[in-house]
Design a protein around this nucleic acid. Structure first.
Length: 270
DNA sequence: CTCGCCACCTGGGGGC
DNA sequence: TGCCCCCAGGTGGCGA
């Protein structure tokens, strides 16, 4: 489910409610996520103050004095704050209780991950190899051009490789390539410098538009009953196979790349 | 190093 | 109704 904008919206929504607050208890119901849940979370965190929530790629980093809780929402994970006493649902695997309210992790597919590190989270084996942040100033056409020279893989797969660029998932990869007018099958190393400029700008614009859309419904999202899911967005090509391109009217096409669906406009994207 | 493929898991929808 | 197959917004780990 979540790509970078959804993860960032979650972070921003939780931060003002939770930063500086002490954990009352941690309640674990299902320990089999992508990795087994860390042991003794309640003993480790009870009484500890949440110092801050950072994000690296799609990982959320919950900072405590003794260490950092590293959370990835996988494909179906979500976090929200529940009112006191609300009973957990079937896929609510973990609660971190702050003053009666629970920060509740729901993840039906259990592709999510929760890890604990007493050390610098940036040095953790899952965090250290991550690629560039697409919304950072360092990410631009020049960077993208240099990073793709040796790559023959299709540009769409390259965009989704978290060891190259973080946070761009299946939806926003298709959307960004549409915005840049680039065929998703183009070998990454064949992109000209000018096209890299356009693509880097398109990635930023696409993610920022999603952030803005989510930001407007942020409070509802974090405090909702969870049934409303992620904010909706008007996609240009994603999920629109056979429908007319919003720009030129040609039929949007779908194909498979790396066992994932790609959507593109055959006329606008060359 | 780069690549292509598999794995993990549950649920929903369509076709028969 | 039921069953079976396919699909789903991620990514680590494997072998080539």
């Amino acid at each position: 489910m979540p790509e970078l904008p959804e993860v960032e919206i979650t972070r921003r929504g939780l931060l003002p409610d939770l930063a500086g607050r002490a954990v009352d208890a941690v309640v674990t119901r299902q320990t089999a996520l992508r990795y087994p849940l860390p042991r003794a979370l309640n003993r480790r965190l009870a009484g500890q103050i949440l110092r801050g929530i950072d994000r690296r790629g799609k990982y959320l980093l919950f900072r405590f004095d003794p260490g950092t809780l590293i959370l990835h929402l996988g494909m179906s994970g979500s976090l929200r704050l529940t009112p006191p006493g609300e009973p957990p649902g079937k896929h609510d695997h973990l609660d971190i209780v702050f003053g009666g309210r629970a920060l509740r992790l729901r993840d039906p597919r259990r592709f999510g991950a929760l890890l604990w590190t007493p050390d610098d989270a940036a040095a953790h084996p899952l965090i250290a190899p991550l690629g560039i942040e697409p919304l950072s100033g360092a990410f631009d056409g020049g960077w993208l051009y240099a990073a793709t020279r040796q790559r023959r893989a299709p540009i769409k797969l390259c965009l989704m490789d978290s060891h190259v660029i973080v946070g761009v998932g299946n939806i926003y990869a298709s959307e960004s390539l549409f915005r840049a007018g680039i065929d998703p099958r183009t070998p990454a190393g064949k992109l000209s410098r000018a096209r890299c400029d356009r693509l880097a700008a398109a990635v930023k614009t696409t993610l920022e538009a999603a952030l803005a859309a989510g930001g407007s419904s942020l409070r509802d999202f974090i405090h909702s009953d969870g049934g409303s899911g992620w904010f909706q967005q008007q996609h240009a090509v994603y999920g629109r196979e056979g429908e007319p391109c919003r720009a030129c009217g040609a039929k949007v096409r779908a194909l498979r790349q790396g066992q994932r669906s790609t959507f593109y406009c055959p006329r606008c994207q060359r």
